[in-house]
Design a protein around this nucleic acid. Structure first.
Lengths: 139, 139
DNA sequence: ATTTATACGCACCAAAAGGAGAGTGACCCC
DNA sequence: GGGGTCACTCTCCTTTTGGTGCGTATAAAT
């Protein structure tokens, strides 16, 4: 149970690898991981990931419709970031009017899988969180 | 493989439950889940979760030191949100100078576990993401 | 008497995120 | 020749986020 990776913090995991106190290198890696998570774990990225998981390939306006609530600007921006990070491929068809298709890379798919735990958690614990909130607010 | 919950989107999961097209209720739940994730999946929450997983119980300044980079304001704010959502308990010892202990609830622990997949993903795919970035920037 | 320590709350300000809407280029349809 | 389509980009504006520093209560230590 102590060896279940799902119950270990990154420090713990790093320690198991190094079997020493955290070195300078560990700290650097951890900082990078934290930064990566900060970039990757935003609302729109998660939702776009989900939508693209469901429909293998979508063009810009299709995505805009499916994501619901996202502005054009945010959609473009998020897709660019995802492309830069290697999560999606962007294929431009040189036709008129323009046509651009987005689809997940294997890396993007794997991130979607990693986030799935969080979605499931949210679904499962939604009512508990709401109960905690009303209890908290009742004071 | 198709039945692996880690590879299904929330729509898919909802569909399996309902066996129909998404109803009004499904949409409402999904919206709530999305909102919950938006609140819960921010940088500081994730990091505080990790730190509190490692050290069972910490007081305010201990947390401030361990989290590194967080401002007092953000620490207070994030902890309050986490408390409201039922992730942490806040026990005030009426002594002087004041002493307040924070520890994770079972709910908080379970969220930590849910996020662990993302941490592991980030650790594992860090170099691939960096490679994708430099490749992208090289144009 | 002054300093120190703790866990904040509050007020002010700077920076960043994000929305709305207009513009663009190239072609097809009427 | 005017309008429509698509995938944007650009500009302006508002909202949100987050940092800094000050204030506070209280007792022990110096």
């Amino acid at each position: 149970m102590t060896d279940n990776p799902y119950e270990a913090s990154p420090e713990r995991r790093a320690e198991r690898l190094a079997e020493t106190a955290p070195t300078e290198c560990d700290v650097r890696v951890e900082r990078l991981v934290t930064e990566l998570i900060g970039r990757v774990a935003d609302k729109w990225t998660m939702i776009i990931l989900e939508v693209l998981e469901e429909h293998k390939e979508l063009r810009f306006t299709e995505l805009a419709r499916k994501v619901e609530g996202i502005s054009q600007k945010m959609l473009t921006q998020t897709l660019r970031h995802m492309e830069r990070d290697g999560m999606v491929t962007r294929t431009i068809h040189p036709v008129i009017p323009p046509r651009v298709d987005y689809r997940l890379t294997p890396l993007g798919l794997s991130l979607g899988a990693a986030f799935c735990g969080v979605w499931i958690w949210a679904e499962k614990n939604l009512t508990e969180v709401e109960a905690a909130r009303t209890a908290f607010d009742a004071r």
